[in-house]
Structure formats: structure tokens, C-alpha cells
Computed example of a mutant assay.
Amino acid sequence: MVIRTLVVEDDFRVSRIHCDYVSRVRDFEVIGQTATVADALTAVRTFHPDLLLLDIFLPDGSGLDVLRQLSGDEGGDRPDAIMITADRDITSVRVAMKLGAVGYLVKPFGAPDLAERLTAYRELQHRMDALGTVPETDQADVDALFSAARPPAVPRIPAKGHSAPTLTLLHQALRNAHGPVSAAEAAELTGVSRATAQRYLSYLVKEGMVRLELRYGATGRPEHRYRIAH
């Protein structure tokens, strides 16, 4: 499954950075960039993206106006939206939630922060697709959907030299992996360096959130592989 993403941001330099961040996350594809409310609405109705990275402050209005107008469209599926803005006003957060935004990121933020939200969103879509094949759901299924929409829990105050967003990113990558992965594979999945992946995975092992497994090859030297701890 490829999640087709439209970036709506009026600063072209910031827009390019956000597109680069999105392109680093597995299963996400940037299908376009727009800088105004009018262009965003046209792009959504033309290209039908799955997800918007939507700035609130735009030259001809607000990103919230984009959500309002798309909510009034008849026919077709409205894309989900992660709001991206420098606005820290709680009123904007509340309005965005009421309009159905699935996430909210306050500038400035780095690639791990956005990847954390995108990975959680991807997990939610995978779970919804899986449940779409069964006739009924139970409470456990519903709880799993709501939990998938949120980043997984990691230590709120990690050890010195470790950031919570990067820990969350690595932890989520292992949750989504099909079997144990090496530090190099984890780095490729998350966009961090191999050395960073190794350091954070070792910390997660120490915290009991990840399990270390040894795989022996022909040389006799074991390869360290990691899987989520259950």
C-alpha cells in the first residue's frame, strides 16, 4: 500500500524539506505540492491524495478552511490531514480535531517527529484494511485501531543523548517489521544512520522494549537482530 501525500505549505523551502521528510518514510509518496487554499482544493479534487500535510497559515486563508470545504464536498473520499503549523493556539488545535485532522505538528520539527506521525498513520491504515476483510469487529479490534493512531509509548525522559521521537521511530519500525531486523535494516526503514539506529536499539533493549537475537552465519560471528518485545 502506497499512501499518496499532498504537501500544502506556502514557504517553498519548507515545503521541499517536508517533501524530503515524507519520501524517507516507507510506503509514503509525495504526489504534489501546493501553497494556497485554492490550489490545495483543486489538487485534492484532481489527484485524490490519501493524506494532506496541511499548514494552517496560507496566503489566501487557513488550512482549516481546506478541511471545512472538503467536508462539504459531495461524493468521493476526503483525505486525512496532519496539520503542520507554527500556531500554538489551543483553539486551532480544537478546530482541527473537530474537522477530523489525524495529527498536529508544531514547527519547528525534524524528520523523526514527522516520521513518527506518518508511521503511526500507516499502522492505522494497515489495521483498518485488515479489519475490512472481516464481517464484524469486537472491542479489542476497536481499541487496536485507536491505539494505532497514536505513537507507541517510549520513556518520556530518555537517557542523556537520546531523543524520545527517535526512540519512538525505531520502536514503531520494529513493530511494523515482519520478523527481526538488523541495525542496518532499521536505519533504512527510518532514515537515520546505522550508528544512530544501533545506539537507539541498544537502549531499547536495555529498557526491555526490544529483544536482541543472535543469528549465526558461515563465519561464526553472530549478527545482532532486533524484534519488538511482547
Rank of each mutant, 00 (worst) to 15 (best):
A86F: 04
M1T: 15
F109S: 03
R16V: 13
V106Y: 03
D89H: 07
L170W: 05
P158D: 07
D138I: 15
Q139M: 13
L170R: 03
Q139R: 12
E188Q: 14
Q139K: 12
R45Y: 01
A96R: 07
T91P: 03
I157V: 14
L67D: 09
G100Q: 04
G208I: 00
D113K: 09
G161Y: 00
Y216C: 08
A111D: 00
T34K: 15
E9K: 11
N176K: 06
D60Y: 02
S182Y: 02
P152V: 12
A153N: 07
H162F: 05
S182M: 05
R68L: 10
E207L: 09
D39W: 01
M1V: 15
D55R: 00
S15K: 05
E123H: 01
D77N: 06
R94W: 05
D10E: 07
M83S: 10
G110C: 01
H18W: 06
K98H: 03
H178M: 13
K107Y: 01
L114T: 01
A173Y: 15
R194A: 08
A197T: 13
E213F: 08
P158T: 04
F109V: 13
A120S: 10
H230R: 14
A186K: 13
L6S: 04
R225K: 13
Y200A: 10
T166M: 09
G179W: 12
T168G: 14
R88D: 02
P155C: 10
T42A: 09
P112Y: 00
D10A: 11
E188W: 06
N176F: 03
A195D: 06
L169I: 06
E74N: 12
P158H: 09
H224C: 04
S23R: 13
I56Y: 02
T196N: 09
L41S: 02
R45P: 04
Y226E: 04
R156Y: 04
G179L: 14
G220H: 11
D65S: 11
P155G: 10
I31W: 04
A111F: 00
V44N: 02
I31D: 06
E29N: 12
H230P: 13
A195V: 15
V205M: 09
H126V: 15
R150M: 06
A149H: 07
D20N: 10
M209A: 13
T166F: 02
G72V: 03
A187P: 12
L204V: 15
T133V: 12
Y226S: 13
P152G: 04
G72F: 01
D80I: 14
Y121F: 06
S71D: 10
A229T: 15
E29V: 11
E29G: 06
R117Y: 04
G61E: 09
Y21A: 01
A229Q: 15
V93G: 00
R68M: 05
G110N: 04
A195T: 15
Y200W: 11
I17E: 00
E223M: 08
G72W: 00
R156A: 11
S163G: 14
H48R: 14
Q125K: 11
H18Q: 10
K98G: 02
R221K: 13
T166K: 10
D87K: 01
